[in-house]
Amino acid sequence: MSRYDGRSFQNFSTNNGLPVNRFWGLIIAANGDVWLRTFFGSGGVVRYDGAQFHRYTTTDGLADDAAWCARESPGGLLWFGSGNGLTRFDGKTFTVFTKNKDRLGSAVAADILSDRDGVLWIAGEDGVTRHDSVDELWSTLPAQDITLGNNIAAVVQDQRGDFWFGSRGNLTRYTPSRAQPRSPQITVVAEKEFDEHESVAELTAGRRAVLKLSVVDLKTRAESRRFRWQFASDKSSIDASRHARGWLPARRETQFEWQTNRAGTYSLAVQYIDRDLNYSSPTFLTLRVSPVWYANAWITVPGGGAALGLVGWAFIARSLVIRRKREAEQLRERLLEQERRARELLQAKNAELEKATAAAQAASKAKSAFLANMSH
């Protein structure tokens, strides 16, 4: 490697610190660091910070030791393409992206372009993947939509804003559409089905609702469509601009579940993103989440009052029953006492009667004896 300061050249090799002597390209990062990439072998990538060289390989986290291309994106992120995928370096950590239906559309990353909007265009054998690191958006243009052949190896953007793709035996110019796509449709399935044409979707706290998204777009394949959404307490607080905060990362899924345990009114906003990364106007739907019946004050307060009333009446009734039972016991005791006294009185009278009878019998015997003596 040689450095020219305007007057003289300074040469670097393995004799004075350079890890390897063969490189296929280099880039200069915004912070002034020079990144050199090797194409074959186990050279990896080399960073020169102005004082010394630092070498990084698969051991440090690269997807492959042969870096086919390199590019810096807004925010200082560095990207390296290879035959085994894409690698991102944030200054501390390497992150590898391999072929995935929701992210990288190809197994290889042959070339990388950062366009005027800061969006990365990653060329591969199955198409071109776009990545907006601000919105964490990934979207792939299939090769059959933009060129006659596969294995796209190069991508550039001209002054008009058109993109040129080089593939095996073909050169293609692609002019993205700037027309705003249609807004998506929203369907919410809960106790019943609601859509964006209804003023409010009624939901119950703690119960899951299924949200379904759809859109009419004749130019974008289903696998290239993306939706992003957000929930807010007020519709006016939702910013629909491209890099606005509050939006969840765009996804290709058209159905997801949502639930909350907090009652209240929520505004759901959904935006559709087409294959050319054009954002639609948001579609809004108001979700009114009601508490479950046992947590609803309009039910529990009157019901609680009624329950307290029943408890109070039960207490009073119980007191009345106890009081009447006590009075019955007292009456029973009085009757028993009267019966006992009457029995004692009867027994006393019977005793007196027995004494009188005995006395009468004794007198009768005495009289009989007297008369018998008189007759003799």
Rank of each mutant, 00 (worst) to 15 (best):
M1P: 02
D5Y: 01
T14W: 02
F23S: 05
W24H: 12
I27L: 11
T38R: 09
F39T: 05
G41K: 03
A51L: 08
D60W: 07
A63T: 06
A66W: 02
C69H: 12
C69P: 01
A70R: 09
G81Q: 10
G83P: 05
T95N: 09
A110Q: 05
L113G: 01
S114T: 13
V119K: 05
P142N: 09
Q144V: 07
N151E: 11
A153M: 10
A154E: 10
F163S: 06
F163K: 06
Y174C: 02
Q180R: 15
S183A: 15
T187W: 04
V189S: 13
A190M: 04
K192G: 05
E193F: 03
E202P: 00
V216E: 12
F227C: 00
Q230Y: 06
D234K: 14
S236T: 14
S241M: 08
A244K: 04
E253Y: 03
T260A: 08
A269F: 01
Q271T: 12
R275F: 12
D276T: 00
S280C: 14
L285T: 04
V311D: 07
G312K: 05
A314M: 15
R318E: 15
R318C: 11
R323P: 05
E327Q: 14
E329K: 13
R332G: 11
L335T: 01
R340M: 05
L346H: 08
L353F: 10
A360E: 09
A360G: 01
S364G: 07
